[in-house]
Write a protein that binds this DNA or RNA. Structure first.
Lengths: 145, 145
DNA sequence: ATAGGCCTTCCCATCATTGGAAGGTCAAGC
DNA sequence: GCTTGACCTTCCAATGATGGGAAGGCCTAT
């Protein structure tokens, strides 16, 4: 089948399929005499694998490792589990960060009258002055950047 | 003061300060005879404002709006609050997505023996076959991409 | 033969940030 | 005065994953 059909069948766009090939995540597809890439059912299955891993938030690099384990019939499930747990840990870290942001924002928004007056604890907090509402202690630093 | 000192004082890197100037987020800094950018205490305060907004996860575009409100003494706190609430909503959406990923991954990892045997429900799930452990119903689609 | 739908490659843009190269400036010490 | 090192300047490039588009080739049905 051609790339369009593989894209439809896998949920990975044709653009991304070419990109994954280019970056070495997947092997080069076969080519028809016309120069068109050709895909088999197995290829589509691999692309679906990638799609699902991507939907679980794995980065492409980690997906490469997952693919290698997938292909390795003598893999150790411990290796797979480790990747999954690293992914869980990474997601948890980001979730925690964002939750802290939400908590701060909610605290600030709650103290904001939200009317036509200019006074606003949100602005005050961003200004770096002590919050007009409460110490907030929101700037836990240690952000991802 | 020079850009380095402004960077230190604000927590925004010199690189980013130049970038923010270039993209119009902040006005062009003054220049010394040498061509060096010069900053005042007010500038540093503005940069700190940006830094804190950034730490709350605001995108640069939203920070521009916040800066405009900050400078607008006749602002309506409702406008500020709205930006904050939009930010909260966006963060919450991402958190929910990630939590769903974590839930799926945990479920799968829990069923993985994590030893030297190759059988692994994580791989099985990514393969797209019915999970060996449970229906999982993890692929809720509707992801951010 | 022609239309239009698919494919190819190549380049560009995103977003926020970092890195580096090549070169100018400043301040301190000799 | 001169050197040195720290700082500054601009410009260009890369990141990661993706989308957009142009210019041109291929395929199939009418």
């Amino acid at each position: 089948m051609n790339i369009g059909e593989a894209a439809k069948g896998s949920g990975v766009s044709a653009k991304m399929i070419r990109y994954y090939e280019q970056t070495g995540l997947i092997p080069s597809a076969g080519r028809a005499a016309s120069g068109y890439r050709t895909y088999t059912g197995t290829d589509v299955q691999m692309l679906r694998f990638i799609r699902r891993a991507r939907d679980l938030g794995f980065q492409v690099e980690a997906i490469g490792e997952l693919l290698a384990l997938w292909r390795d019939r003598s893999r150790h499930s411990a290796d797979v589990k480790q990747l999954a747990q690293a992914q869980i840990a990474g997601l948890r870290r980001k979730i925690t960060e964002m939750e802290s942001m939400v908590a701060t924002l909610e605290h600030l928004a709650q103290g904001c009258s939200g009317d036509d007056r200019p006074d606003c604890p949100i602005i005050a907090d961003l200004e770096g002055e002590a919050s007009l509402v409460a110490p907030a202690c929101h700037s836990g630093q240690g952000f991802n950047r």
